[in-house]
Structure formats: C-alpha cells, structure tokens
Nucleic acid binder design. Structure first.
Lengths: 206, 206
DNA sequence: CCTACCGATCGGTAGG
DNA sequence: CCTACCGATCGGTAGG
C-alpha cells in the first residue's frame, strides 16, 4: 500500500498527472461511456467534488487524458531514428526502425488508446483531431525528415519523403495493427518483407 | 410518408433484414452503448417486446447486425479483381483496383461500421473476430488469389501472394483510412505512389 | 403485441 | 477565517 508520510493536512488522494494516469486506466479498461467518474474518483482516493474541481466534466477529463498521453509518446521514435541516421548498414537500420515502430504502436496500451480515441471520434472530434495531429502526424513527420536526410546523403532516392514515410509506416504496421484493433493477437510476420519492398522502390543504386 | 397498403392484420412494423437495417443505422449513429433498444423498436415501429422476441438481447442484435453486414460486403471487390485479371495494362489494372478498394473501404458507412466493431472488440471479441475473418480476411485472400494468377502468367514475380496482398492493401488504404477513422476528411493523395512502389518490388521484368 | 415498470447506475451538485 | 474535502443525494435514463 502506498501510505506515504504526509506532513500536514495534505489529502491522501491523487491529483495532477497522477490523477490523469488513473483516469487513463479507467478509460482504457471501460471505454468512454463505460468509465464512471465515481470509479475514477474512487481509484484516485478523492471525492467526486474534488475530481470535478480539477476537471469540469467527464469530457474535459477525457480530453486532458488524451492530450497528456500524446505529449508522453512524442519522443518514442527519436532513438531509433537517430540510430538509422548513424547506421552504416541501411537495411539493418530500417529493420531496427521497423521493429521499434511495431513494438511501440502494437503495444497493448497504445492499441487501447487508439481504440478509445477512434471510438469517440464522432462524439468528440476535436480530441481525435488533436491525437492525430500531435501524436501520429508528428511522428510521421520526423520519419519523413530522417528519410529526407538519407536521400540528401545519397543513400536513398526519394522524391516525396512525406509519402515515403507513410508508405513505410503502413507497410510495417498496417496488417498487425488492423488485427490487434479487431482483437486478434496479430502474429506479426516479420518486418523483412516490408523493408524489402521499401528498398526495392527507394534504394539509391538502381 | 410510407403508409403502405396492408391487406390483413399484418403489422406495420419491420422485421427480418429490414429490422437489421434499422438497427444498423442506430448502432452506427449512436455507438453500441449509446444505442437504445427503445430507439430501435420505435424506428422499426414495433414494441420492445417484439424486438426482444426476434433478438434475445442487445448484444445478440448487435452480433446479427455485424454478421449480416459482412455477408453484404463480401463480393465488393470481385468486379475489380476480374477486370485486373483481364486487363492488358497491368499498371492500369492495379490503379483501377486500388481506386475501387479506396472507394469501398473509405466510404462513410464502411468506416462507421469499422469504428463500431473496433470500439466493441474488447467487450464482444467474437463479433470482431467474425468481422475480421468473414469480411477482411476473405477479401485479402481473394486479392492474393488474383496476384498469384498474375504471377503464374508471368506478369508479376511474387513469392508470397498473401504477404503481397496485405502490402498492396495497406499501401493503398493505410494513410487515408487512419485519417478517416480519427475523423479527418482524409484528403487522399492518389493511388499512383502506392502502385509505383508495389510494381517496383513485384514487376516481372527486373 | 403493448404499457408500465423493475433494480441499478449514470454525470453532476447540494449543504456544511 | 480560509481552503480543501466529505457523505449524501439530486433528476433522468439505461437494459430488460
């Protein structure tokens, strides 16, 4: 039990980022409509009145959870992209990147968050748009920058890095993400076929 | 108003496939939890008791709606696949197929159904698994057959038609489907880049 | 086939 | 005195 020492009259309950983390768990487990403010408050060990003082409504709490999540996952691809730029073996670098992307995007919490935001896209389109822009398009843009750098250094021949980044992404994660979003275990078939096709189209030494 | 002539004591309300169509509209508009059995009964002009006599529960009605939907969309790709086999211009045939796939998979009702089934995949995994198998994997399998035929005739060089079918599919629809699932308008960038990359990897005359 | 109604629970807010 | 927080309950609605 997390019975911490609390100097004065400070309450035992959670707030701030810790409260958002608890709310995220509840939303991911129950879905938006299945999640109750009572459960969030109970698991955060605060009253509902306190919860509503930090977040004016259930939808505002949900928006805060998604926004906080996008900030946390913004730099997930950076290490693999830097390894790709530094790698002497282009093919190995792309395979490493592809496996990093799969491990991140196909991880259970990331899939669950995508399912949550997708399900609520009609009711709360601005939250879904924020997620798409801050999380997805940001990472695609960084991949495009890395591909452009490889093209500038003469290792790839790419006219449209943004399009190539999207193609690489969906070659790598399309099939297993689709399977996991629909509940299947995925059974990923390896990223080599994706990298092979990508290099067949964009390798410099044609 | 649809006040039809009814010869005898036949009730005015809907049943069978018409009832499923109304229920599908309600599920697509409201989501699973937002859809009420009262609204389905009201829009079908039957009592809730009659609705429950045809479908024992809300989840059973949902499962029937999804299953009926998968049967309706099973042959959507067939004409484009036959045109691909008969086409003299391989590239034009693939572009035609890609545009047909986009028009179907990105259409608002198909996206809405995918969003519904995805959102409910955790609560009702068997329904999502049925959708994945009967609708998605069936069409991917038919595309794989067509690619295998093109390989057998010497127009493509493909070792794994199933893998190539998945690659083609996600190159064509990955980015715009992702955008539409998250509420964006998509702004599809054309299928030429997808076909170009696919042919770079699988065209026979290497 | 319908009206009426159930046990349970929702998001949100009251007084102290 | 102030703040932060509590137990209790509001009006409506869900699936069945």
């Amino acid at each position: 039990m997390a019975t911490e020492l609390r100097p004065r009259g400070r309450p035992a309950g959670l707030n701030g980022d810790d409260l958002l983390a608890v709310a995220r768990e509840v939303f991911l487990q129950r879905g938006y409509r299945g999640a109750s403010m009572d459960e969030v408050a109970r698991r955060a060990r605060i009253s509902k009145a306190s919860l509503y003082r930090e977040h004016a409504s259930k939808s505002a709490l949900y928006a805060a959870v998604v926004h906080h999540w996008t900030l946390a996952g913004r730099d997930a691809m950076r290490p693999a992209l830097e390894r790709l730029r530094a790698s002497g073996d282009l093919r190995r670098g792309l395979v490493d990147l592809a496996e990093t992307m799969r491990a991140g995007i196909l991880s259970p919490p990331v899939v669950a968050m995508r399912r949550l935001v997708t399900a609520e896209a009609r009711e709360q389109p601005e939250v879904a748009a924020t997620y798409l822009e801050e999380s997805w398009n940001t990472n695609i843009g960084r991949l495009a920058e890395a591909l452009r750098a490889l093209a500038d250094s003469g290792r790839l021949r790419i006219e449209d890095p943004a399009s190539a980044a999207e193609q690489f992404t969906w070659l790598v994660i399309g099939a297993p993400l689709n399977a996991r979003m629909l509940g299947g275990d995925g059974s990923a078939t390896g990223v080599d076929a994706a990298v092979d096709l990508f290099l067949a189209g964009y390798r410099a030494n044609a």
